[in-house]
Design a protein around this nucleic acid. Structure first.
Lengths: 239, 239
DNA sequence: CGTAGTTTTGAGAGGCGTCAAGGAGCGTGG
DNA sequence: CCACGCTCCTTGACGCCTCTCAAAACTACG
């Protein structure tokens, strides 16, 4: 499928405490190594998989940044999530044996390929892994619910504030700054995810800048006042 | 926890082809019977579980109708789903060992209690069950993504049309009419789910009535022109 | 038969979408 | 190295959809 296959081992991966192998014993880890044997490179702008593709594997983001999005027959388009290192992509494909969204790299990326039938086999053997797979899926469900809350009940400023806080929080968990970040996605992609138009995203960024809450220079964002952002999310001015 | 415990068997349940035991062999089914031994009655307006409750079991709706909703500290509220017979409630609890939403019966209901540790144990034994559990979780993820599409990109009429079509489709799969239904939830609950205010829900219903697409008398809805509804969903007038 | 909850409908306001134009950043090629 | 074109971003003006506030009608239930 792809010439860019690389040998790898979870046991020596610096993401192992964020990713699928979290909490496994050394013994279990080495078994997992034998299942997750390949990586795949995905160039910026190209897709890891598309809607309708046969489902065979889950993917763990090793490096880079992805978006997942669904596109309907009538041309509607919705970004359903952004995935960074250590996060799992492809859970949507299990139910119908085909993927129901596109996964697109927003920068040159690398993923670990995890053949799902082998993951299932191994998780019949190891309770720890089994439970962890369940947790990963449950976490995705809970995350989706909070996005539904955002889309269903927040106004533009609240959405963008919540979005920025979520991004830095996840980046911070990966060792990056709590206050500075580079956006890997366009204003349009942010807007699609947050249910608003790109102009509104841009205007809202400008408003935050005017209020001294953040600095923005294109894709670069510096959060000067995290508490102010938090307050905006919780202000409940309501929509 | 609840005095209303009743002995039951999946193998003799008329929902077994919709519910968890779907596709199991008779042998596997009888093993499942020994795990799912109790039902629980939930009175209209009361909750099956609340946010923060310890997670121990999944629940299959045996009869009745539920809503799940998340409530934030600042009083924001979002209905994340409506569940009818054969559907599974509680997947949100797996990740943190505590439920992250409330599940509330919209009419007197009965659920089958499925202790999750035992479901996990059994699904280590039976590939069929294991895979089915994964599918159920994946289906929930895919469903959530389509709600995100609805909330992120549709206008009020489109949302309500999509909602009605989804409801009758699920009811039809349970042997009910394709064109008539009784809403089990209030306009406010519909609005919360669809990200709009109850007045807008009401107005949109009235608009559909004026256009001759449906009849509405309180909770009773008669869909006179399914194609018109489908057209509304797909018209992509855009938001 | 009264009361609380739910639904409908109206009038007005405002947030966000739409349309449009201009600017900034960046890669490509002369 | 600069010019050029492309994509992305910003900002303004205007209009509409949906929210807000309010009141009345209807239903259910005690």
């Amino acid at each position: 499928m792809d010439a860019h296959s690389i040998k790898v081992a979870c046991s020596s991966c610096n993401l192992r405490e964020l990713c699928l192998p979290m909490g496994l014993s050394p013994d279990e880890m080495s078994k997992l190594d034998s299942v997750i044997t390949t990586r795949r490179r995905v160039k910026r702008g190209t897709s890891l998989f598309n809607t309708g593709d046969r489902f065979s594997s889950l993917y763990a983001v090793r490096s880079g940044f992805f978006k997942t999005c669904i596109t309907t027959a009538d041309g509607r388009d919705q970004v359903t999530g952004f995935q960074m290192t250590g996060e799992i992509i492809g859970l949507d494909g299990i139910v119908n044996d085909r993927h129901s969204c596109d996964a697109i790299a927003l920068e040159d990326a690398e993923v670990c390929v995890m053949p799902f039938d082998q993951v299932e086999e191994l998780s019949r053997e190891f309770t720890t892994l089994q439970h962890h797979v369940h947790k990963i899926m449950s976490r995705e469900i809970v995350r989706d619910h909070s996005v539904m809350l955002l889309l269903g009940s927040m106004r533009a400023e609240e959405r963008l504030a919540a979005f920025l806080l979520n991004l830095v929080q996840r980046l911070h968990a990966r060792g990056f700054s709590q206050s500075e970040l580079i956006l890997r996605m366009t204003r349009e992609e942010i807007g699609s995810y947050l249910g608003m138009k790109l102009e509104t995203v841009s205007r809202t960024f400008s408003k935050f800048v005017d209020e001294g809450i953040i600095d923005v220079k294109q894709r670069y964002v510096h959060i000067k006042d995290t508490d102010a952002l938090r307050q905006i999310v919780n202000q409940q001015t309501s929509k």
